[in-house]
């Protein structure tokens, strides 16, 4: 009797009249539940830890370059590993230019496809077209690269021999990237445009607006954050794309302020040189990786923020 009162007072599980067995089972279940909770928490933290670890290891391994010549690194106009001149400017310029060309081309096309799919497409075509777009988004980038070097570059060289004397270049890479991110932006745009309530759409049509007027005046303003988010996610993909770009960018490591000429991108430069690099070159390439990481991270964080805003509003 004495023991029992003590137990009652000490246990969270003991209601008056609870049997020992009941309490044992409750205790066991609580333990399992806590273990489960902790382990899911651990997995979630592991992701954060991993992100931090990547960032830290990039910083540490590129420290030699960054501490010794951070300014030269960002402004140097050439990447000459043999002379230990590591200027990231050509790669940063190439990365930004190719990605911006890609977005400039991809955005109108993707929005056009998305508008057609959501507003004008006959029901029977809607699913097949939608699935095709999603399939395009899943094609491995190396295939786009091969297509770029086999078909697109010779084609551009043939059509505009003065602008594309060698076929390859920043603009060629931008075009290939555009084709790669079109399905991506299209899929997201379509999905966010479908979040516009039918009633909003109908009330605009009910005023005698044409499709273009409805899209421009009502649908775009309603979902502009979501569509911006889609564009920025596409941009993020373009920034980091490696294989397709390496094939067609021209791989010139000197800074030329050109659009159609040859250049390089951060990802292409790393892919070309990292396997053979050691010492200072390796450290410089890792610093370059850090730059790409930061650019992409900033871009994706922006996109996430924009998408969150539309989700909050939809809710």
């Amino acid at each position: 009797m004495h023991v029992s009162t003590k137990r009652l007072a000490s246990s969270r599980f003991a209601f008056p009249g609870a049997s020992d067995k009941e309490i044992r089972i409750l205790k066991r279940n609580a333990l399992i539940d806590r273990a489960f909770e902790r382990s899911t928490q651990a997995f979630a933290l592991a992701v954060l830890l991993l992100l931090g670890a990547i960032l830290v290891s990039l910083c540490v391994s590129s420290w030699d370059t960054l501490s010794a010549h951070a300014v030269d690194f960002l402004t140097g106009d050439r990447w000459a590993a043999n002379m230990e001149m590591f200027g990231a400017l050509p790669a940063i310029y190439g990365t930004l230019v190719t990605s911006l060309i890609a977005v400039a081309i991809a955005v109108p096309v993707s929005f056009g496809i998305a508008i057609f799919l959501t507003e004008k497409c006959p029901e029977i075509l809607r699913r097949p077209l939608g699935i095709t777009v999603e399939l395009l988004a899943g094609i491995p980038s190396i295939i786009y690269g091969m297509w770029g070097v086999e078909m697109l570059a010779p084609f551009l060289n043939h059509i505009f021999p003065d602008l594309f004397p060698a076929g390859s270049g920043l603009a060629t890479a931008g075009l290939v990237l555009a084709i790669m991110i079109i399905p991506f932006i299209t899929a997201i745009s379509r999905d966010v445009m479908l979040t516009v309530p039918p009633i909003t759409r109908e009330s605009a049509y009910g005023l005698g607006c044409t499709t273009w007027e409805v899209v421009r005046g009502v649908i775009f303003p309603t979902v502009r954050h979501g569509m911006m988010g889609g564009v920025v996610l596409g941009l993020g993909r373009a920034l980091g794309e490696t294989m397709a770009v390496t094939f067609v960018i021209g791989n010139n490591l000197f800074f030329h302020p050109t659009i159609t000429g040859q250049g390089t991108s951060i990802a292409a430069l790393i892919a070309n040189q990292f396997p053979e690099a050691d010492g200072a070159q390796r450290s410089a390439l890792l610093a370059l990786g850090l730059v790409l990481f930061l650019i992409t991270f900033a871009v994706l964080a922006t996109a996430r923020y924009m998408l969150n805003r539309i989700e909050r509003r939809a809710a």
């Binding site: 909003t200 009330s203 605009a204």
Partner: peptide, 10 residues
Amino acid sequence: MVFQKPNPFP
């Protein structure tokens, strides 16, 4: 046309 739920444009 006027609908069930008020739905001003954004």
